[in-house]
Design a protein around this nucleic acid. Structure first.
Lengths: 137, 137
DNA sequence: AAATTTAGTTAGTATATTCTAACTAAAAAG
DNA sequence: CTTTTTAGTTAGAATATACTAACTAAATTT
């Protein structure tokens, strides 16, 4: 157990570093940490409305309205009015906003490469099959 | 390779969720995202001075001075004047500041438990030995 | 020992982040 | 069909985050 926790800690650190390196590569320099967090959350929720985003971020709706306005100005997000409820809009990431996904992919590929470099074909297969066990409900 | 990247992505998502859950458990509600990031970085650098912290965060020194002042007011950080260079101070996390480490430990333990639940004794040993291979230079 | 560099601070400014209060307009309930 | 609820916005205020310019004081160079 202790060993396992140490491994997770190391892996977590490694992933953090890779994500940071990826962030530099993709140079979202016109975004603050908080704005990145908004984009991540919009992405994870898949086109939420303002209310859903506010709940997820644990912020008040006016706060989110203002923040999203800025992200729209900067062309990272667009609002698409809902057909079912005309008061409401769904938030979509623009092409530019979706770059955050490519950024994560980049980080993940880098880690995958690191693993591939260190393990044999057979070990990689074992590694994958162990994770498949972990990720079944 | 594709499988491996998917696994890393899943794991990364899982870890993110755990870290968030841990943050809720530890309830650093008087800290902003950015302030948490300062504490993380101070912790990683191990008692940096203002200049080193500014470099690591890619911010100007006056920005960091002001931010650290606030973290000191909130009792998360203390400054210890350097003996070698009396102009400079080392930043230390207080007891309260070091809680962020416990928070990470909590997240890592939760993931470790998740893994232990899904794997047999033998599989865990294999899992650990594979990671040991990955983490040797 | 004087000049320069370095570490950090203070002051002032601009923008970001968050809140509450008060509002509009659409949808749902009575 | 009137009342109430819900989705979101606008306005105004407080605090946070970041910058440049100008400074102090200690350390280093010349």
């Amino acid at each position: 157990m202790k060993n396992l926790v140490e491994i997770i800690a190391k892996l977590s650190m490694e992933m953090g570093l890779m994500e940071e390196a990826a962030r530099e590569q993709f140079n979202f320099s016109d975004l603050t940490l908080t704005q990145m967090h908004y984009l991540e959350t919009i992405n994870n929720l898949v086109n939420p409305n303002i209310t859903e985003l506010a709940v997820a971020l644990k912020l008040k709706k006016p706060t989110v309205t203002v923040a999203v306005d800025k992200l729209m100005e900067k062309q990272y997000v667009i609002k698409v009015q809902s057909d079912e409820d005309r008061r409401s809009s769904h938030l979509h990431l623009t092409e530019k906003g979706r770059l955050i996904n490519q950024m994560h992919d980049y980080a993940h590929r880098t880690i995958a490469e690191l693993i591939i470099k260190k393990l044999s074909e057979k070990e990689i297969k074992t590694f994958i099959s162990l994770f498949e066990k972990i990720y079944t409900i």
